[in-house]
């Protein structure tokens, strides 16, 4: 029994140490004077590899999710005879929840895991060490652009996801199931509030982007520098990111519903 508690305590201490290290990593990478000559091209490159290359999965998933929500929503609303309300149902569920959350989880799976693997591999092959020996700080040169790339890409991807999902909802609801076009859009417009729904959705995606990027980069930077270590770290990134997203989503939704 005592041994179990001791192990639990030891695990707790390791977790605290890991959180501390991750905090240090964040501070030492981000809290710096920005170096625009080198930093900007690197940032653009990272937005490309994290954001642009994730576009395909975001677009396809967004479209399908919008279509499914519309289909299911129509099914339910039909029973109450309120199918003209489909527009606001689709828009509210996507802008408030599905847009930020699903796009964040997809990003974690696609770009987060890639980040972890890349940084882990650079650590395992001594690329980060050799950079240090060349008097270049790898935290500024390699890690910081990846941080900022993630922070900027995720909200953009979330907004694009939301847009195409609503369009998917329109395709199914209006074009296929015959909901009135005018009712669809006007119901949406009078019930979706820019500040409460859309801006809050964007705030959620910014928070999620911060969390995912931080987790992904830390797991890569901190991993055991072997093949097995990298694969474990990549898995951890996806799992932890997804859990953190869902947890943060609940907290943020509660805060937003309470009227902040």
């Amino acid at each position: 029994m005592i041994a179990f508690i001791a192990r639990l305590g030891k695990a707790g201490i390791h977790i605290c140490e890991a959180i501390g290290r991750s905090g240090w990593l964040l501070v030492r990478s981000i809290i710096r004077k920005p170096n625009f000559r080198h930093g900007f091209p690197a940032l653009v490159e990272q937005i490309y590899s994290e954001g642009v290359l994730s576009l395909i999965i975001i677009l396809v998933s967004g479209l399908f999710i919008g279509m499914v929500v519309s289909l299911q929503g129509y099914n339910v609303l039909e029973k109450f005879g309120t199918t003209p309300a489909l527009g606001q149902l689709v828009a509210l569920s996507i802008t408030r929840e599905l847009g930020p959350v699903v796009s964040a989880i997809l990003f974690a799976g696609r770009a987060g895991s890639a980040l972890t693997a890349e940084i882990g591999l650079m650590k395992a092959t001594d690329q980060l060490s050799s950079m240090e020996m060349m008097a270049v700080d790898p935290l500024r040169r390699v890690i910081a652009p990846r941080f900022w790339g993630g922070f900027l890409s995720v909200p953009v991807l979330a907004v694009i996801f939301t847009t195409i999902a609503i369009y998917g909802g329109y395709l199914v609801g209006v074009r296929w199931l015959g909901v009135d076009n005018g009712a669809f859009w006007s119901g949406m417009q009078s019930n979706v509030d820019f500040r409460i729904d859309i801006i809050n959705g964007i705030i959620k995606s910014i928070v999620f982007g911060f969390a995912i990027t931080w987790i992904a980069i830390f797991q890569g930077y901190d991993c055991v520098p072997t093949a097995e270590g990298i694969s474990r770290a990549t898995t951890r990134t996806v799992v932890y990111s997804s859990l953190v997203i869902l947890g943060l989503d609940f907290v943020l939704t509660a805060m937003m519903m309470g009227g902040w």
Binding site: V159, M188, Q189, V192
Partner: peptide
């Protein structure tokens, strides 16, 4: 698009 078409800003 979201601002104008979806929320009627």
């Amino acid at each position: 698009f979201l601002a104008i078409k979806v929320s009627g800003l």
